[in-house]
């Protein structure tokens, strides 16, 4: 994934490194526990979320809900996606990939239920949002983590890069 825009080994101050690593670990924590909580709850299903979808993805959401195979797939993708991304971000393992996939996942949540003017949701929101909500902010934070990687300094990626360079 290395490209010119993102240097593999930027130079951070200690504070910058602590700040960026903490952000990565906290987002990882959030993903991981969301995944584990769903895994542990035998009654959890993405159906409730999908039935409350508004805006441009209503049709897609309904198709998923009405097809048990698709719904099962969506459930598993959510559970395992969240869990694996969570692990990756926390441990600093393939973190740059994880931040991109995590961002896409969060953006899906965002675009399925965007807080746009005129859209009413069944499920009450825990705060007040207009256009920008915590999903969008978390997606943005993941973009920052992608642009400012830390896992090759603090994280298992350090070992992987080491092996690569050792060759």
């Amino acid at each position: 994934m290395g490209n010119k825009a993102v240097p593999v080994s930027p130079e951070y101050t200690n504070y910058q490194l602590i700040g960026l690593t903490t952000l990565r670990v906290f987002i990882g924590w959030h993903f991981l526990y969301e995944g584990i909580a769903k895994m542990l709850n035998p009654y959890w299903s993405s159906a409730a979320f999908l039935l409350d979808v508004k805006w441009i993805f209503v049709g897609l959401a309904e198709s998923i809900v009405s097809n048990p195979t698709a719904l099962g797939l969506a459930d598993n993708l959510n559970i395992w996606g969240l869990t694996l991304i969570g692990f990756a971000l926390m441990l600093g393992l393939f973190s740059r990939w994880a931040s991109v996939v995590g961002m896409v996942l969060i953006l899906i949540y965002y675009f399925f239920t965007p807080p746009l003017v005129g859209l009413e949701y069944l499920k009450p929101r825990e705060g007040s949002y207009i256009i920008v909500n915590k999903n969008l902010i978390e997606a943005c934070a993941l973009y920052v983590i992608y642009l400012f990687p830390t896992s090759n300094i603090i994280g298992l990626d350090r070992l992987i890069y080491r092996n690569q360079t050792a060759k």
Binding site: S9, T13, I153, R158, Y161, R162, T165
Partner: peptide
């Protein structure tokens, strides 16, 4: 202070 940001073990 700059951190040790070289790929580890280079």
């Amino acid at each position: 202070n700059k951190t040790d940001s070289k790929p580890a073990g280079a």
